[in-house]
Each structure stands twice: as C-alpha cells, then as structure tokens.
Design a protein around this nucleic acid. Structure first.
Lengths: 240, 240
DNA sequence: TAGCACCTATAGCATTGCTATATGAAGGGG
DNA sequence: CCCCTTCATATAGCAATGCTATAGGTGCTA
C-alpha cells in the first residue's frame, strides 16, 4: 500500500497527498493516511511542511505552477481580448480536469480573507486586460474587468464541477464568457467572428447610433465635434 | 456561557450552531462547543440530528427558508427580467449579510454532486425566466439562462465575500449582472428598462458601431478621419 | 400504579492533528 | 579514528474531534 518508487520522503508525501486528495471525493484526507501511503511517519510530515495546511499549500503550489504554465502556454494572438477568452477556457479546463485541486485552489472562500492564489490568477488576466485597455478595447477600468471576468469564470467552473459529468454543458461556459467579456469590451457582441459579414453590420450600427444620438445629445463632444461626427456617421450609413 | 433563554433543546442546538458558525471565521465548529453553548450533552445532538452534518443541514435549511422568503418578498414588477435583476441583487445581499451561512449553502462544492439547495435557488430564478421566455424576451432556453446567471451570481457573491469589507465594490455585481442578463435576453440591452435613460442607448449603439468598424473598415472616411472618428466614438462609449 | 415512548446524561471508543523526545545517518575538524 | 554538529526519521503519546453503547429520568395513557 505504499508508493514503490523510491523518492525522497518530501516528494513521496506530496505525491501521496495529491493521490489521496484526488481519490477521496471531497472528504477530508487524514495525515495518517498520507504518511501511511508515503511510507513515512508523522513527524517527517511535520518536519518538512510544519503543518497539514502547509502540506496542502505545497500541493496547491504545485498545482498552481501547472495552472500558470498552462495559461502561459497559450501564445498571444495579438488580440488581447481573444487571449482573455482563451485564458477563460484554459481556466475552466483546468478546473474540470483536476476538480479537487481546483476546489482547494479556488473553492475555499473565507470572509474578508481572499486567497492569494486567486489574486495571482487575477494578475495573469490583468496583464492581458491592461493591453486591451491600452488598445482602447475596454469599456471599464481593467481592474473592474478583471474582477468581473474572474468572478464569473470561477462561478462557471464551480458549477460545471458540481454537475454530474454526463450532464455537463460547456455552452454555459462559452455563453457566460462572451457575456462578461463583451460587457467590459467596447467591441460589443457584434464584433464576434460568429456574426455575419462586415459592411452591413457597420451600416446597421451606424444607423442605430444616429437614431440614438437624435434623442439625446451626449456632452462628451463639443458642438463642432458633434457636427462633424454626425456628418461622418451619415457618410458611413450610406455605404453599400 | 450557555444560552439563557429556555427553549427546547433542539432549538437551542440550532441557535448555538448558528451563533458559533457566524462567529468562528470559517474555522470548523466542533460539536462539543455547540452542545456546551446549548447547555446540552452530545447524545442529545445526535438524537435530534443524527449527525453533525444533519445539524448543519438543519441550519442550512433554516437559512434557506430565509433566503427563499427574502426572494419571495420581492413583488413582481411585471417585467420578468427586472425581477431577475432584483433576485440577483437579493442573492448578493443575502451572501454579504450572512457570509458563513452563504458559504455553507452555496460554497461547498463537491465534484459531480451538486447540492439540492442550489437547485432550489435555481428553480426560483427559473420561474421568472420561463415567464420571460413566454414573453419572447429570451435569447436562449431558460434552462441555459438560469445556469449562466446562477453561476455568475454565485461567483460574484463569493468574490465579494472574499474581499475585505472596506474594499468591496458592488459595481462588480451590477456590471456582471447586466452582462449575463443582457446576453441571454433578446431585448439587447437598449430597450431594457433597467438600463437608465436615453444616454445608454447611445452608448450601446456606439459600442456596436465601434465593433462593426473593427471587423471591416469602410472607405468612406480617410485614415485620419477614421482615427478621429474612432476616438470620438470611444469617448461617447464611455458615458455613464 | 404500571407500562411505554420519548428524550437526555454518563462514560468511553476510535480517529483526528500534532509534538516532546530520542535515534539514526552524514559530514567535518581534531 | 573519534567526537561533534546537523539534518532527517522514528517511538510513543497528548488533547481534541465525531460519535455511540448503555442507562437513567420524564411525561403521558391505561
């Protein structure tokens, strides 16, 4: 019942913890089971990790390295918001593939006491969103965008994990992902490659904007600016 | 250190459990502390609730009754999607006000094993969304809409709970709420009564145009014109 | 009063996380 | 070669945990 491969005890403990954590369905894993599987006695565990929590922190750290690596593996597409979409998908995939690890990493919420894992994951997203903001693709401050996206991403992943494997509907993820990303981006949903062709969309949107402007004049533009803007808008609307 | 008010032991146990759960910051609550506070011995607890989990289930059941009651308290506005928005807000409020209870109700995720509490909460939303669908306000099947909204709602609430009280930014909630609801609704946000007055119609239209322009550049404007046009468009889109 | 169902208490078991203390092994300086 | 230090592991056991076998009230109905 012990791990055959002869590794240093520290590694064996980590490996045993990972294995037991993965196999015991969310039920708490005892240090005794871990040390037994690792072929080691209790004090060894506490010598290396100080604490049960320390051991699990180490496990989580390993998992998080994998997480970061998998997020970094994605080559930038040049479009920051597309990168964000792929990071979302990667996040969900990670959660589905290693649900127990994910739950320890992102599922253990404590009031007023956010895990720094979540913060680190946010930082990864933040990088992309900053670039998106620089490129004028963002509608809201990147800090706000990151939290909204992250919250939804975690919520969706938790829900998918909680569902029986057979019932999992990943459209939930795509739908929610596009919803929140669209909401923070100035690309709006129409920009989605899934939507029709170019010219007509421009015309339709231009007409709509024209109509909207007629009913309420925003103060963001001066009178002269607005006049010119409307003129251009008119020109665009007349495109074929 | 025991509860003065003389209630039946069952109620005292429940009350003690609630109190300890609320005060011990996420740390596990021992049955001994509970029975001690309730002025009762261990077997009494197990007689009434069978299990520690049974006791907490009862606590959660009580909390859930409060949750449902608070959701039911909202009078229908006649616009199902507005009702959904108010239910979202109520959900978040409940989580913020009783974080520990909320975490037990919605935060304990187990792989492939969803709590029926969550399902019940979904059912409440489902009612409104079915009505929205009947009225033709939905873009996707109500079953899909419910899951997306619920996942985001829980994700946002968990994130708000995890943040230090002082840093809580409830705009996160509003933003994400409108994002997911808009995404599933065919109202396309513009007609939405919840999105304030005229100005936002301009914003939405501007965003749409911006998006359309990105995928296809019309030749009606020169490069410099287009650059300026986009700049102004951007400014308009940033209206509140 | 007797019987009966219901509720509660005494005392203790097995398991949990963790530790005070001791033992072993490896290396370096005399 | 021996001693000393340092690191790593083991022996044995503690306090706290969830839970229970058993027995003792307590209030009804007959």
């Amino acid at each position: 019942m012990s791990l055959d491969i002869q590794l240093p005890p520290r590694e064996r403990l980590l490996q045993a913890a990972v294995e037991l954590l993965a196999n015991s369905d969310g039920a708490p894993v005892s240090t005794r089971k871990i040390t037994e599987l690792a072929g080691v006695t209790a004090p060894t565990l506490y010598h290396h990790f100080g604490d049960k929590e320390g051991l699990f922190d180490a496990v989580v750290a390993v998992g998080f390295e994998q997480y970061v690596a998998s997020e970094m593996d994605l080559e930038p597409t040049g479009k920051p918001l597309d990168d964000v979409r792929r990071m979302w998908d990667q996040h969900v995939r990670f959660g589905i593939e290693k649900p127990h690890l994910y739950l320890v990493m992102f599922g253990k919420v404590r009031p007023g006491n956010r895990s720094n894992r979540v913060s680190e994951a946010e930082a990864l997203l933040r990088g992309k969103l900053d670039r998106a903001a620089e490129a004028g693709h963002l509608n809201v401050p990147p800090a706000d965008a990151v939290r909204s996206i992250m919250a939804a991403n975690i919520g969706v992943t938790l829900m998918l994990i909680s569902e029986p494997e057979k019932e999992r509907n990943f459209e939930l993820s795509d739908m929610t992902r596009d919803a929140v990303i669209t909401a923070v981006s100035s690309e709006a949903g129409i920009a989605d490659s899934a939507t029709p062709v170019g010219a007509s969309a421009v015309v339709v949107a231009a007409i709509a904007l024209n109509a909207a402007l007629e009913s309420s004049n925003p103060q963001q533009l001066s009178n002269t600016e607005m006049k010119m803007f409307l003129e251009w808008l008119h020109r665009i609307s007349k495109t074929t």
